[in-house]
Amino acid sequence: MSQGRTLTFNIFRFDPQQPGDKPKMVSYQLDETPGMTVFIALNRLREEQDSSLQFDFVCRAGICGSCAMVINGMPTLACRTLTSKFSDATITLMPLPGFELIGDLSVNTGKFMREIAERLKLWLHPRGDGQDIHVLEAPMDPEEAARLYELERCVECGVCVSACATKQMRETFVGAVGLMKIARFELDSRDARSVDDFYHVIGNQDGVFGCMTLLGCQDNCPKDLPHMQQIAYLRRKMSATLVSC
């Protein structure tokens, strides 16, 4: 069914470092092969047609989160998007909006994620006890561990940020990825921070109260993370903190 089609790729091209270059859409044609993904297609285009085409792939297995881009209006991981998924033989590729553009389809999500981790202190702040690595570890409720892993499946691909109109309008808003990670540490019994500590980080207009619940994050997340549930949880919790203090 997917054999024999000629695909047209409309690709956003812009090299911000090239003096005089302007953003434009460029069309490329490619014969579709069985099992072709956008990863395979882009690499063939670069090897056969235009060696200056920029894009990012690392694991090419949907694990590392490097290759998010907007494919026919949907921000998603390019490596695991099969071209056969699109009944129309035209595929439009845009870089993820909201990030610094390196060139063409390549954006600097890494820089963004590191900055947000530093800003929100997205790491475990361990309690003082039980840090001896030579003795039996402290037990943890198996259910809690499973719940934490579910939230930890985020691959920092940036889709939630680019799919969030709130974040696009307001630079300082932390975005879903930051909130999800805060929720992950808030739920972790090993973390020493109190609700109050988290309130100081996200209990504001740039944090959980800045979210307008447009849910682009949840609807596009390639890992199907429960953004709606977790952000609502944080909102209730942060709001309750306000009442109690």
Binding site: E118, T172, H200, G203, N204, G207, F209
Partner: peptide, 24 residues
Amino acid sequence: TTKTYVPNPVSPRVLGHHWSAKAD
């Protein structure tokens, strides 16, 4: 775009503000 990262001091903007909770 690559730079040496140093942890940002928390800016007053990101501190919790009870008015935003109330407004929400």
